[in-house]
Design a protein around this nucleic acid. Structure first.
Lengths: 159, 159
DNA sequence: CTTAAGAGGTTGCACGCGCATCTACATAGT
DNA sequence: ACTATGTAGATGCGCGTGCAACCTCTTAAG
């Protein structure tokens, strides 16, 4: 701990903290833009898009609720409600699990697949426009590899 | 648009999208950890910490509500409520603005400064542990510079 | 001075989320 | 078989947040 816990200003690894702040700002910015675009153009929240995308990339287009919750970074209860909504819209179904009687699958319906396909270009465009437009490829690759060291992503990246 | 909006799998600039996903995961992960630590150790939400930090770095330890809202990436109404809470805790005060009768300053109190000083080591430690521990300096600097191009940060970085 | 347009902040409202709790099932341990 | 511990999901509840509407003050236009 290189910190003195002083009155109000201390300097410690400012570059590292700067990166963290930049990441926060970037995330917030892109998330907002993406959310708004998806909502107006496809009436689809970003979290919903995430769910559909994960299911789409999964074998048999189905995932256990628990699994899915982890992948979309939601609490179990949060996912329960979200899947409720998506089910009401007919984009997702629940299916019992043969191996485990208490388990449930969230299954992407055909309608869900269609909505996902419709929304994906918007998603792509949003990310590229908001997030990547300015960066060149080498820098992107460096950032990705650097950050990936820390967070080995469990998603097979269905995009 | 290099996207065909196909059935379920299309590939387009996978590195760029991968970076975006990594950033999202990183942000979520660190945010959660930070929030939890600050909450248990200092009974302070991350958003509250942000407000205190911004005020601490501002001249006269005060900022216009509008300004502050933008810096901490909250809507005006969101900030109104947050400052309400902080004011109830005595960490922040509201002060009228001489130049503009409808304007208000949020002002960091001494108690607020103390709480911030107490919490800052936890914040630092959390960021370093969760976010930076694995990365080496050069990579960090590259990421920072790359991302900063996109998001020129308005914060004077009070840390 | 009067009016119109706009910006700063706050309030009503609804929504999405997490935590704690609960039920149902699973898997030991005896 | 019986009990205990743990896991998968769902529900009650409270909280924080954004959007739209509102009020107040400012600024420009006539």
């Amino acid at each position: 701990m290189t910190v003195t816990a002083g009155e109000s200003k201390q300097v410690v690894g400012s570059e590292e903290l700067a990166l963290w702040h930049v990441v926060r700002r970037a995330q917030a910015r892109v998330t907002r833009a993406l959310e708004a675009e998806l909502l107006v153009e496809h009436d689809l929240a970003l979290a919903s898009y995430d769910v559909l995308a994960q299911l789409s990339g999964a074998p048999e287009r189905r995932l256990r609720m628990n699994d899915l919750a982890e992948r979309v970074m939601l609490s179990r209860s949060g996912l329960t409600r979200l899947v409720d909504r998506l089910q009401r819209e007919g984009l997702v179904e629940r299916a019992a699990c043969a191996d485990d009687a208490r388990g449930l699958f969230a299954v992407l319906t055909d309608d869900g697949a269609v909505r996902l396909a419709e929304a994906t270009p918007t998603y792509m465009r949003g990310v590229r426009a908001q997030f990547l437009g300015v960066l060149d490829e080498r820098e992107l690759r460096r950032c990705a590899s650097a950050l990936t060291k820390l967070f080995p992503d469990p998603d097979p990246d269905p995009d």
